[in-house]
Design a protein around this nucleic acid. Structure first.
Lengths: 142, 142
DNA sequence: CTCATGTAATTAACGCGTTAACTACAACAA
DNA sequence: TTGTTGTAGTTAACGCGTTAATTACATGAG
């Protein structure tokens, strides 16, 4: 079946949903001069430790060309460090730097407030159900 | 609660889910030299008839500056027409043109195949449930 | 060793997302 | 009529998304 209207179109619904959620987080990121993508990269590095560029791009849902630009920006602000992998001159290993960890820590309380508010308004169980369905969709289509 | 990992982060899950879904539609759009956003605009005009720019932007989930560029592109290819609203020189009314309708029609069969495949793999009921939850989330946060 | 092939990352080109500033027009008060 | 305020749309600036091309290095065949 073709969606009869744009509101019931899966791509549009996912886009719109992401928009309204991100609207809550955007001011926080803007206040610290970090883009959404830079923030995703920092979070992955923070929770996964030193990681090669390809895996980082994959985990942060960022394409390689974007990652190159993001790395340049984050390295310039000393949020991360960039090194060649030993044994393979092509690969690049990224590591979060103290300033990067500090930013993550600084934003944690605010993130928690926003996330809790969304969870409370939407409902804990419904949020878990939604995350489950999204995870299923991702695993099934990728 | 803060998401303990990026996979259970709502913004990331929505982003990733949208990516894997759009990956199925992208080749079709590329084959007809239409961007995702241009396609969304055309679909809204197709199902809603002549519409003012502000409402169009809202319904297609496109920001006003982007819409300006998109209109320029679609008008150049004779997919839509652009006219000032009578009675208010600021407003702009967009209307789908024959070539635009023809594109919508031409892509319908292919869209149906892709959408049916997603629905079959993911499951009809789960898809409906997911769309419901997304709609709730959107309405609750916006 | 040399060459062909493959892979990781970067660069390039173009369109969109986002915010802020600006232009054009409308509405309304004095 | 004039000036103020508000609204619709556009423009500008910068970063990211996407695809294709390119560079640098690794790997394996001969």
């Amino acid at each position: 079946m073709l969606p009869e209207n744009t509101r019931r179109s899966l791509p549009m619904a996912l886009l719109h949903a992401r928009e309204v959620v991100m609207a809550r987080f955007r001011p926080m990121l803007a206040a610290h001069d970090v883009t959404e993508q830079q923030w995703r990269v920092l979070r992955v590095l923070s929770e996964a430790g030193p990681v090669e560029a390809t895996e980082l791009a994959d985990r942060a849902s960022v394409l390689p060309p974007s990652l190159t630009r993001i790395i340049k920006a984050l390295e310039g602000r000393r949020f991360i460090t960039r090194n060649k992998a030993e044994g393979d001159g092509r690969r690049v290993v990224l590591t979060i730097a103290p300033a990067g960890s500090a930013l993550i820590d600084a934003l944690s309380p605010e993130r928690r407030v926003i996330y809790d508010d969304i969870e409370q308004r939407f409902g804990h169980d419904r949020l878990e159900k939604l995350l489950d369905l999204l995870e299923n969709l991702i695993d099934g289509e990728s």
